[in-house]
Design a protein around this nucleic acid. Sequence first.
DNA 1: GGGTAACCGAGACGGTACGTCCGGTCTTCAA
DNA 2: TTGAAGACCGGACGTACCGTCTCGGTTACCC
Lengths: 210, 210, 210, 210
Amino acid sequence: MSAPSPARRTGRPRSPEADRAILDATRAALVELGWGKLTMGDVAARAGVAKTTLYRRWANKNELVVDAVAALFDEHLDLPDLGSLQADVEGVVLRFAALLERPETKTALMAVVAESTRDDALRERIRDAIVDRQKRLVLLGRERAQARGELPREEDPSAAARTADLIFDVIAGAVVHRTLVSAEPVDREWARGFTTLLVGGLTSTQPSGD
Amino acid sequence: MSAPSPARRTGRPRSPEADRAILDATRAALVELGWGKLTMGDVAARAGVAKTTLYRRWANKNELVVDAVAALFDEHLDLPDLGSLQADVEGVVLRFAALLERPETKTALMAVVAESTRDDALRERIRDAIVDRQKRLVLLGRERAQARGELPREEDPSAAARTADLIFDVIAGAVVHRTLVSAEPVDREWARGFTTLLVGGLTSTQPSGD
Amino acid sequence: MSAPSPARRTGRPRSPEADRAILDATRAALVELGWGKLTMGDVAARAGVAKTTLYRRWANKNELVVDAVAALFDEHLDLPDLGSLQADVEGVVLRFAALLERPETKTALMAVVAESTRDDALRERIRDAIVDRQKRLVLLGRERAQARGELPREEDPSAAARTADLIFDVIAGAVVHRTLVSAEPVDREWARGFTTLLVGGLTSTQPSGD
Amino acid sequence: MSAPSPARRTGRPRSPEADRAILDATRAALVELGWGKLTMGDVAARAGVAKTTLYRRWANKNELVVDAVAALFDEHLDLPDLGSLQADVEGVVLRFAALLERPETKTALMAVVAESTRDDALRERIRDAIVDRQKRLVLLGRERAQARGELPREEDPSAAARTADLIFDVIAGAVVHRTLVSAEPVDREWARGFTTLLVGGLTSTQPSGD
DNA sequence: GGGTAACCGAGACGGTACGTCCGGTCTTCAA
DNA sequence: TTGAAGACCGGACGTACCGTCTCGGTTACCC
């Protein structure tokens, strides 16, 4: 948040230690208990903080958990250039899978998404905090592939956006489904198979074209 | 094989009407309230049944909802032969999306999956009741495509299984992600774009081959 | 009940063993659990009998418990002539106290009486089964004392009845209060003190007289 | 003597209004429903209070009802000097009877006493809150009678205590038995007859003496 | 360096749902 | 028709959380 908190000047400032302790405690509770059993009282106790202090910062459980999980997605977002489209995609698949296999994300992500089907504000928050950050990697990967000549440049910007969305849904969806629904590991072999399929599709045709 | 009634003889038998009424009430409550607000007491009241009667059959909310949702997957499982691999895949994509866009599945499915990350018995139940039924469509579609000569026959059965799993994760994952995370509709255009990408990948390469 | 059940001839006759087993089980449960925790299901299980069998014989918990307790009051009703009013009263006091100190009566009696404050039929049943049987002892004792010349004969029968009621309330009330409320034992010393007080009052004045 | 607030400092203090509202509601519910039908949820609703608030103060129905009834015994505890032993005893008898005939005490007292036969803590609470307060009247009455010269002074303090206990059991027991078991009213006539009997006994002999 | 406004901990509060238990009834099969 | 078994409805139980509130007490900033 770049905007400096608009109207707060006087009075005792909020403790930044409390912020950190609460988010840490939330993640720890998530790992131990899962979304369903996590309680605000327990998080407060773990953080050595009063419940009031939680509610002064987050309006409810959902918002707290989304923020706690979102922080995990801040890290691991760089995508080094691996030299080819195939290698870049494999890289992002493995990176995303590694994130999803961490116990705190595993439970939290689906639970938060489930909750968001009934709560537009929550969905917006998830999109900002989690989804769009992942999508940037796709855009970056395509940029590189086009620079290398592996993929043609798309003139129509709306078609380009549609294609990027599609690719993102395919990558993220496949990894999530493999990890959380099929409950099978995303290992190097699976990543190669999936990437080969995807890159084959991308290069053989122009999905949104024509 | 012989006597399918393993253990119950004495006492009043459970009412099959109650079973039906409870599952119907669960689906209705899911539509109106969503997973989060659904309560056992409310379901019982809708079904005209005592709470005891629910708990005699299902140990908790999760199991009840899985069974209630699973019944929806029993219908809509046929896949008419549409004449080509492309058409068959488009068909299954649209059919699956239609299911996911129904309000009772939308919330319930993700919530139950989220819960299953902490509960192996629940995951097993989901797999049996929901996932494997969908996967059968993929196997059927491949069978037809091979019969038509659109796809080569895979000799190694374990490689064949791996490929089927991959395709299933890609299709189901992409549709779920598009519907629930991106929260965009799976319309005919998106289905065509996705299918083109997938079929392109399948025919241009042998994903698990080599 | 002397009247032979009017209209029952055909079908399987009721098991008299069940009757006994149920009443025994009720008393046992009363001792272990007290009135409040006693449950019909538990009694049935102890008696090795189905709940149906209980309800075929008694309309509800109260009736069952009253009958079970009443049976205890059937015994111990004889009052041997001890030669003097003082000795006779002491005898009845000790006998009644012995009954009240048995664990099954201790809890049950007060509980049933408490229940009866809201239920006239129950009060009637208690009067018939328990109270009036005790009162007979008082009448018998007075009869003897009058025969011995220790007490004058009362001409007015309604005044005589009033006096007998008073004496009964005093004796029974004092013993019950000592035993259950003060929770102190009714030993020989207390019985002698109480009897001296009562007999002193009876002989020094004509309580209901004028 | 100095600081009577032993242990509570931090946190929001308990609402004294809630205390009062709950006890009032309990008495009202007792009048309308009786002990057996009184429920914690109903009391909470009448008091405009959450069930939690009840359970934070009283562990169960018994304790709550004892306290609610005990408050009634706080009022009506004065015993004006009526000039003679006979008049004082008649006074206390009628006063006690008036209390017992109120619908909220009628059911509650016996039920709680019944429960106390299984629960020592409850008996202690009843003794402190109810029994001992009544007993003070007996001691006061004797004091006056001795001052007037109607009764001799007892030298041995333990014998004095025993006599007081006896008189108390006789008075309270007789009134309770008349009211709740015999279910007959304690009117002026009965009170006079009973008092005559008791005072006759007290003055004609020294019950515990010799 | 004294106000003061916002902070913090503790914990009570109203509410809602939980999952269990029991009372009393009903239904099935067997004796 | 009785009996055992056990499902059924209704309703209270006591507990657990949620999110709010009210205490006494603690900082940082600003004048």
